[in-house]
Simulated assay, not measured.
Amino acid sequence: MLLAIETSSLVSSVALLHDDTLRAELTIQARLTHSEQLMPHIADMLDKASVKKSQIDGVAVAVGPGSFTGLRIGLATAKGLSFAWNVPIVGVTTPVSLAWNFVGVSDRICTLIDAQKGNVYAGVYRGAAVVLRLPVGNKLHLTGRQAHRQRQKQRQRDPSPLHGFKPRDPERPGCGCR
C-alpha cells in the first residue's frame, strides 16, 4: 500500500493507494499550517481506513513546484515516515501528476499552479505527452492514443501505481525500487 502526501499549495492532501485502487483520501484547506495538521491527518486517515503502519510499502510525496515551506514540511514528513517504517520514498512533480489525469487525451494539456503575486507554474504537454520519472531514473513517454495502450500494457506487466515501485521484500529491508 502506498501513502501519498501533497503539500505544495495551501491545500493539504494525503491518500492511500492499494494496487490501482484509491483506498482513502483526505484533502483539507484550513487556516492551520501543514506542520500542524499533516501528521494528525495521516494518523486519522490510517485509522479510518483500518490500515496499520506495517501495511505501508512506500511513500510518494509532491516535490513541487509550489510553496517552499509546504514542500519542506511534506518532504520532511515523508522522509521521516520512510525512515521510521523502513520503506522506499519517491518524489512526484506536481505539474506531471496533474497532467496524468489526462493521459490518453489527444489535445494539448496545460497545467497551471498558482505561484502567488500574479505568477503561475506551468507545464505544457503536446498530444498528452507525459514523462513519468521513475525512482531509478527511467522514463516512460506517452503520446495520445498510444498513451492509453502503453499504460494498459505497463499495468499488465507491473500493476503497481507508480510503474517501477514495488512492495518491499521482507527479506531485504529497505528495498523497494527496481
Rank of each mutant, 00 (worst) to 15 (best):
R155E: 01
E171V: 11
V105I: 15
D47R: 15
L22G: 11
V11A: 10
W100G: 12
L142G: 01
H18R: 13
A76H: 02
H148W: 15
F68R: 00
Q156C: 05
D107K: 13
L71A: 08
V96D: 06
G127P: 00
Q150E: 10
S67M: 01
L16I: 14
L46W: 01
V96I: 13
G144R: 15
L32T: 13
T69K: 09
L10N: 04
I113E: 01
D114Y: 12
P65A: 07
D158E: 11
C177N: 14
N138Q: 05
C110A: 10
Y125Q: 07
T27Y: 08
N138E: 12
G164S: 03
A24G: 02
V87E: 03
R145V: 08
L140I: 15
S54I: 07
Q37T: 15
T143E: 12
F83R: 08
V11F: 02
K139T: 10
A129P: 04
L26P: 01
A115M: 06
R126W: 12
L2V: 14
T143R: 13
L3P: 03
A147S: 08
P170A: 07
S12L: 07
R149H: 13
A115W: 09
E171H: 14
H18D: 11
C175G: 09
A62N: 12
K52M: 00
R168D: 08
K52N: 03
S67G: 12
Q154W: 13
A15I: 04
M1V: 11
H163Y: 10
Q146K: 06
I113T: 03
K139H: 15
P65I: 07
L75D: 07
V120N: 11
V14L: 02
Q37F: 08
I89W: 02
S9C: 02
G176P: 02
V90Q: 04
R31P: 06
V131M: 09
D44M: 04
L132K: 09
D44V: 02
H34I: 01
L112C: 08
D57G: 07
R155Y: 05
V59I: 07
A43D: 14
T111D: 06
L2R: 07
H141Q: 04
S54D: 06
V90P: 02
V92T: 05
E6H: 12
L142Q: 00
D57T: 02
Q150L: 14
G70Q: 06
Q37H: 09
Y125I: 11
R172A: 09
V59S: 00
D169L: 05
G118V: 01
N86Y: 04
R145T: 15
G137R: 01
L17N: 08
V14A: 03
